[in-house]
């Protein structure tokens, strides 16, 4: 059974209004446990809408999202909340940390929801902070930290409840090349440990770390590519070629 599945997923913004816009068209998609999936596509292709819909951040207009075979819409509000804090970990381009709370408190929040005791919280935070190199700034507020530190804190928060799936929307979007590389090494490491990662990016190099590549265009899955036995270089070239094909088509028009 797939860990995550969408059936005929559609999302329409401004339904029945003058500004009606179909962001996703009838998408059928499956994610197996332990995969690292990268979603790419031009701006407005529906990438963020798609991961928001599969991660319960947003509801689809029609179709189904099943996680572990369970229909998300059938879950009660409490179940969805519990599901988000225990099964999913979110990482965003703009970090989405609370400016009013220290990095330590931001990271502790999902554990507080999961009723993890205070000693265990402190232990897990210390381990993760050591692993990601942010121990020194745990007591700082986000606005006193660099972009790289904030993103690593966001990763700590996403990992702290040991989620099955990590959903990342442009996680390297605000990072320099050094911090991007470091982040991708962390993702690779986590994926090797069995964590499923679904990630949206504009960066072909970042996409080359994935095990499956999905190219969206105008709300539809246009191309899917599995890395299989390809080396990272070969895989990267194929991803570049898919992106280039899109650009060439635009130029022809």
């Amino acid at each position: 059974m797939a860990l995550l599945e969408t059936r005929h997923l559609s999302k329409v913004y401004g339904l029945h209004t003058d500004t009606e816009f179909v962001a996703l068209h009838d998408i059928n998609f499956e994610v197996e446990e332990g995969e690292m999936i990268c979603i790419m596509g031009p701006s407005g292709s529906g990438k963020s809408t798609f991961i928001n819909a599969i991660s319960t951040i947003d509801y689809p207009t029609s179709g189904n999202v099943l996680i572990d075979g369970e229909e998300v819409r059938a879950l009660t509000g409490k179940q969805i909340g519990r599901f988000r804090s225990s099964t999913l970990g979110f990482i965003f381009q703009n970090y989405n940390l609370l400016d009013t709370h220290t990095l330590y408190e931001n990271i502790a929040m999902p554990m507080s929801l999961a009723k993890v005791n205070q000693k265990e919280q402190a232990k897990r935070i210390k381990e993760l902070a050591d692993y990601l190199g942010i121990t020194a700034c745990l007591n700082k507020y986000p606005n006193a930290c660099s972009g790289g530190q904030k993103q690593r804190a966001a990763i700590c928060r996403a990992l702290v409840n040991e989620p099955k799936i990590i959903v990342a929307d442009e996680p390297t979007g605000n990072l320099d090349s050094k911090n991007s590389k470091r982040l991708m090494d962390v993702f690779k490491d986590l994926n090797d440990q069995g964590v499923t990662i679904i990630m949206v990016t504009h960066d072909a190099l970042v996409a080359s770390y994935s095990s499956r590549f999905v190219y969206l265009h105008d709300g539809r899955i246009e191309t899917e590519l599995r890395r299989g036995d390809l080396s990272q270089d070969e895989y990267f070239e194929k991803i570049m070629a898919i992106n280039a094909r899109e650009s060439q088509e635009v130029l022809k028009q």
């Binding site: 609370l98 400016d99 009013t100 709370h101 220290t102 330590y104 408190e105 502790a108 929040m109 554990m111 507080s112 929801l113 009723k115 993890v116 005791n117 205070q118 919280q121």
Partner: peptide, 21 residues
């Protein structure tokens, strides 16, 4: 309070940080 006493109370944890601010 936020980091220790309210660590297992998600509402108080969020309120404490906002209130402090």
């Amino acid at each position: 309070l936020v980091a220790h006493k309210w660590a297992m109370h998600p509402h108080l944890m969020a309120i404490g940080g906002f209130l402090r601010h």
